[in-house]
Nucleic acid binder design. Structure first.
Lengths: 209, 209
DNA sequence: TTTGCGGTCACCCTTTCGGGTGATGCTTGA
DNA sequence: TCAAGCATCACCCGAAAGGGTGACCGCAAA
């Protein structure tokens, strides 16, 4: 009976050391229990289906299916799923997207153990635990600043060292169109030039590192 | 007596969860002992001076002084220091540099717990524990492909959206000199243009993300 | 001491970028 | 239904980038 009252936790992260860290952090919490581990987004979805945990800790950077896709997939199937984002780097759009995608908590890996435990507990109680700076990011401009899929596609080709003309050939569109897209991208990212745009996009998580 | 035979370990990483993971991994190893924790490069150096650990686990990405500088600083003061690099991302030059800088082991954070323990033990016995792909990287081209500090400085300004002319003004050198440096950078990185160079440099760890 | 390398600079010339302006067709949501 | 946003394309023009070539200085290693 008492055992059933424990908060059942699933941890999805491709770093075993982080799993160990979570285990360590939870082992002294009598009201929590780590019931599953996943090392990829795909595995996270499978484990979620099997275990239906109360709280899921989800890293955003994982092999095969990324954390964001996994989060969305899980929420589509289980809209009540309570998922906490666990990320290395602060200030990227990935995080903002995760919140938009339905995450109810946000933890940096540099968080203290006590923060982890507190967040899990509060999220389980139904609260949302989003740091102000992330909430601001959503409120202010990141939502509007989002690049379209087409823009990201073009920016990726530009980052790979292709000129506007070559990008146009690759995508079977005119060079002028590519220029037009790049113009929009630079404006959205407040970049001085294409190089700046790529570096901003990489920093913010629009482009894979 | 027996206690003194334990391998004394210092862990330097800005992620408390990783510390916890290391604690967890070590807690069942009777021949090892975690004697210190550092959360920045600077702190790592200070802790090393104070504790003189047998083995140091060092993350490369840390605030204030980076792991690489800390490693170099420690090795300069204590040439016999046995330092294992603990990194998130594989395949970057940072790792290769760390090896050049005197690291005797290299662990991905995605390593298994058993690998961590084994590496610590072997490194303490005097072995080097460098994965073949990293060793290859050193042997083949990364050594020659290294950018000079000046080139990195210029590339960083270019990544920030400055034109050659502006970079020249900032550094009080001619625009022509900047072009000359960028030419070399692009050749070394096998980049098509400056944008490509920046994206390659960020991927390889020349430029901070 | 000579060689190499890093850092500095210059000139020329072609290609590419980036800004401005404007226009069309399609889809989607208010 | 109508506005808004996305993707598409065109033309002009000045500014910047990039390729080639060559040169000088200082320092450190061979």
């Amino acid at each position: 009976m008492a055992t059933n009252d424990k908060i059942r936790i699933l941890c999805a992260d491709d770093h075993p050391l982080v799993h160990d860290g979570v285990s360590f952090a939870l082992q002294f919490q009598s009201d929590m229990e780590l019931v599953g581990s996943a090392f990829s987004g795909q595995e996270a979805v499978e484990q979620f289906r099997k275990l239906c945990p109360d709280v899921t800790l989800m890293d955003l950077q994982m092999p095969r299916m990324g954390g964001l896709e996994a989060l969305v997939a899980i929420r589509r199937e289980f809209p009540k799923a309570r998922i906490v984002v666990l990320t290395t780097y602060s200030g990227d759009v990935q995080a903002a997207r995760a919140i938009s995608g339905g995450a109810v908590g946000y933890l940096l890996k540099s968080s203290l153990r006590t923060e982890l435990v507190r967040t899990v507990r509060e999220v389980h109680q139904g609260l949302r635990r989003i740091p102000p700076e992330i909430a601001d990011m959503l409120a202010t401009r990141y939502d509007a600043d989002d690049l379209t899929p087409r823009e990201v596609e073009i920016l990726r080709l530009v980052a790979a060292g292709n000129s506007n003309k070559v990008v146009g050939d690759r995508l079977s569109i005119s060079e002028e169109t590519v220029k037009s897209h790049m113009k929009n991208v630079m404006e959205k990212l407040a970049a001085n030039d294409r190089t700046h745009a790529v570096s901003i996009a990489m920093k913010r998580g629009f482009l894979a590192i």
